[in-house]
């Protein structure tokens, strides 16, 4: 075996390099976290700015500066919630349609189509909103402006739907055929089998689908920036949906370009980034845990 040793050395090196790329992914996530933390911590050096974080006004360029996050958090909440209300039922219904109802040819048409939907760049959805849908909604529904929260929700919903459809469909496919057969053999209609056996069995997968869609919607930037009007106000009740709002992501995108490096404003934007990072982290980890549990239940 000694004679092969030199070559083994080369292989060791390559294998080490390969392994290090795997570990690099962990390092990247940690790096992102560290850099977000590093550039948002200075914000807490000034008592006054720290206190203003919980305020209701986001006025980064006024004197004195105010960095109230409440309107931004609520803005994100409104837009995301609206997107979920639209996308979860539609996405799950579409997944059921594809997995259970559609004939083979339609399924083979729909699946790539949904995948393609996911590939449409977010600026394109934004442009559609600005150029066509916004003005059209404003005119048809007599809204005060063509840029409002619900329009963001609608477009985000269509961006979250592909994720929801594909994860839900996987979950539905993971339901053993024997359970469907068992249900049908007891005299259940197909629809009864879907609602009483298939959906409950696929429950965790469907929840994960919703969570992953949620993660996508919270983090979406360009579309929201373009169509929701970006007014940092506190949305009031249901009416808030037809008025402009400003989300966390849009705030970063709109303001970072005009901010002096290492200013308080700069730190505040990084802090918003840190919050977004943590929120999506929690959502994705929970989704992963749920999916993992589904995998175990299937056995």
């Amino acid at each position: 075996m000694r004679s092969t040793k030199p070559r083994r050395w080369g292989e060791r090196l390559i294998e080490g390099a390969i392994k290090s790329t795997g570990i690099a992914t962990i390092v990247f996530v940690l790096l992102i976290f560290v850099f977000l933390l590093k550039d948002s911590l200075p914000l807490f050096g000034h008592a006054k700015q720290t206190a203003s974080l919980l305020g209701t006004r986001w006025l980064p360029t006024s004197e004195p500066e105010q960095f109230g996050l409440i309107p931004l958090l609520l803005g994100s909440l409104y837009v995301t919630l609206g997107a979920m209300v639209i996308s979860v039922p539609l996405g799950v219904a579409c997944a059921i349609f594809i997995a259970e109802l559609a004939p083979q040819w339609l399924r083979e048409l729909l699946k790539p189509l949904v995948e393609l939907l996911a590939a449409v760049p977010s600026v394109v959805f934004g442009a559609l909103g600005v150029l066509l849908l916004g003005p059209w909604f404003a005119k048809t529904l007599h809204l005060p402006v063509g840029q409002f929260a619900a329009l963001g929700s609608l477009l985000l919903a269509f961006m979250a739907i592909p994720t929801i459809v594909s994860v839900s469909e996987d979950a539905l496919h993971a339901v053993p055929r024997a359970l469907r057969a068992g249900s049908l053999a007891l005299g259940a209609t197909h629809w009864q089998s879907i609602t009483r056996v298939v959906l409950p069995t696929a429950r965790s997968g469907l929840i994960a689908a919703g969570l992953l869609g949620l993660g996508r919607a919270i983090g979406e930037t360009m579309t929201v920036l373009m169509v929701t009007g970006n007014a940092a106000v506190i949305p009031q009740g249901l009416k808030g949906f037809i008025l402009p709002v400003r989300t966390m992501t849009a705030t970063i995108a709109a303001e970072m370009g005009e901010t002096a490096h290492n200013s308080t404003h700069y730190f505040a934007l990084f802090f918003i980034g840190l919050l977004l990072f943590l929120i999506t982290l929690v959502v994705n980890v929970v989704a992963e845990v749920v999916v993992h549990r589904m995998g175990r239940e299937a056995k």
Partner: peptide
Amino acid sequence: RKRVGMVFQAPNPFPMSIYDNIAYG
């Protein structure tokens, strides 16, 4: 299928309680 019941090769209980399995039909 209500009149002609079937028992399958491998047991296929639904992932619910014993009670709900029986009550399903």
